[in-house]
Design a protein around this nucleic acid. Structure first.
Ligand code: MN
Ligand code: MN
Ligand code: ZN
Ligand code: ZN
Lengths: 151, 151
DNA sequence: AGCTTTATTGAGAAGGATACACAATAACTC
DNA sequence: GAGTTATTGTGTATCCTTCTCAATAAAGCT
């Protein structure tokens, strides 16, 4: 959960015998510059890259998202839309959680410092190396409560 | 997040114009009697039912799991195995969270009263009707840290 | 208890997100 | 700069979940 640069990413990859590629660097940059509150799916990322003139294959995108999530660079969000979303994983003052309406998928972000502390403490106590810690609240938003539509 | 009986489930279903079926009642019973710490996927549930002589189609199982999750009876867990798992949703003394190894999927349950309080307060503040509240910690377990296998 | 309405089921097919296979490429090490 | 091998791109495969639709059976009313 530290801020990555192309250089530090390369160092961490090489340390494990892996390589920094233009594709990986481009994808990291995209997430670093993503406005707060945005989350990208694999396809979102693919389209965003295309708009910017970068062609990176969907396979590489899926592989890179998974890689970066497992390195702790990105967090993988299950926002109840049937596919995963990703955002940059940031420490304390930016770290946040998600309140999700299970009917319309409207999502609200909120902060709570205690939760990350609880997560860190729990992981440490069990000898786990922490990657990400997210509180997910499944709920029904005011609009959907008023609507008469079933489930 | 209250304890359901067949009767109270029927009441809540009928109130919305829905019906209590033998399939739904059977599935509720399965989850109520599931030993602590167990989570079932759709296919797990299908097999468990088959062993007990109940034939309930996979379609119905998927529909029922989704229905009960959206009613707040079950909680839907994303345990990083590529498919969802479900468990009964219980209030305070039984309410718990999950610490998951993203490499081997080993999962540890832990309790923390403050988190459910935070979740309830946050949902209420935004006017959301709370269904479930779960802290997910993605991490790497001691065994996987020692293994040299990539990601 | 019987009748009517319509939510629900079961079987199979379809959909969609993600992973895989493998030859071509290119990042790293020396 | 050359050799090694991780990574990419393309197409294909896999698997979880949802959809379709005719048959069934709960619920509500007499
Ligand atoms: Mn977010
Ligand atoms: Mn559990
Ligand atoms: Zn909503
Ligand atoms: Zn592990």
């Amino acid at each position: 959960m530290t801020a990555y640069t192309a250089t530090s990413l390369k160092a961490e990859l090489n340390e494990r015998g892996w390589r920094l590629t233009p594709q990986r660097e481009t994808i990291l940059t995209i997430f670093q510059n993503l406005p707060k509150g945005n989350h990208l799916s694999a396809e979102d990322l693919y389209n965003l890259l295309s708009e910017e003139g970068h062609h990176i294959s969907l396979s590489t995108i899926y592989r890179t998202l998974k890689l970066m999530a497992r390195m702790g660079i990105l967090r993988e969000l299950e926002l109840a839309e049937g596919h995963k979303h990703y955002e940059i994983n940031q420490p304390a003052p930016y770290h946040h959680h998600h309140l999700i309406c299970v009917r319309c998928n409207k999502t609200i972000e909120f902060k709570n410092d205690g939760i990350l502390k609880t997560g860190s403490r729990t992981a440490q106590k069990e000898g786990y190396h922490l990657l990400d810690c997210q509180l997910i609240i499944h709920a029904i938003c005011p609009t959907c409560q008023r609507s008469l539509l079933p489930i």
